[in-house]
Amino acid sequence: MIKDITIGQYFPGDSFIHKLDARAKLIVVFLALVEIFLCKNFLSLALIVIFAIVSVAISKISFKVVFKGMKMIYFIIVLTSVLQIFYNDEGTVLLDWWKLKITTGGIFTAIFMAIRIICLILVSSLLTYTTSPTTLTDGISRLLSPLNKIKVPVDTLAMMMTIALRFIPTLIEEIDKIMNAQKARGADLDSGNLVQRAKALVPIFIPLFVNSFRRAYELAFAMECRCYNGNNKRTRMKQMKFSWRDVVAFGIIAVMLAGIILLNHFFGAVI
């Protein structure tokens, strides 16, 4: 079900990670992702795993929720790892059958890749779990604000993003409602060939578009009433201020970078 996806959801809280400045958080997450790719052996990867687990623990978001959110991606993780098994043929041969050859090197790479992807998802979903979509958009738009100078309408784009985020649940609900209404009139949405199925979507999409335009129109009025005109100098209620927390976060990520480079250097690369 669409409703079960927790990736991208926001869980309000007041942990260290929740309180990080959105801009700092974005940069730290970005650097962490880079570091994940820099890992060349299991020791440096272990450093990342510890970092990821400790981060989740600090954020006070239950591991259950985090792993449930990954459910949709398990398939991708398994697929990528399995492909790695056959891709790498270094090390001792464990199994050699027809064209398939499994080696210790392959197994190691597969495990390495799986851990790497899980860390990637953990770290990036922690960003959305601990930052409200509006704050996140806000952070992005402030990081990109230098682009204003070359006439990129960063603020307008950020507003569009916020509105899109706001209306996604509303539209999902609406699609659900329209589908049920048309099914109640005997519309058959789950059988037939490709053309028939595509045709069956017309009664869903036309009302959806018509309703969305109506919503957009009403929303525009409402925004105008609240003095939005697209080019005002807006202030924000939530000030973005770097604090000691952000310095700590940057410190950790810098130390990790150094650690990874050193571990890669002294213990060699397995990948």
Binding site: T134, R234, T235
Partner: peptide, 24 residues
């Protein structure tokens, strides 16, 4: 549904004053 702009209640209420350029 068609007049709420933000994804968090308080951020929506802040939308108007923000447009007016009021101090945080």
């Amino acid at each position: 549904d068609n007049q709420i702009v933000a994804t968090i209640v308080e951020e929506d209420v802040a939308f108007g004053p923000e447009n007016l350029g009021i101090e945080p």
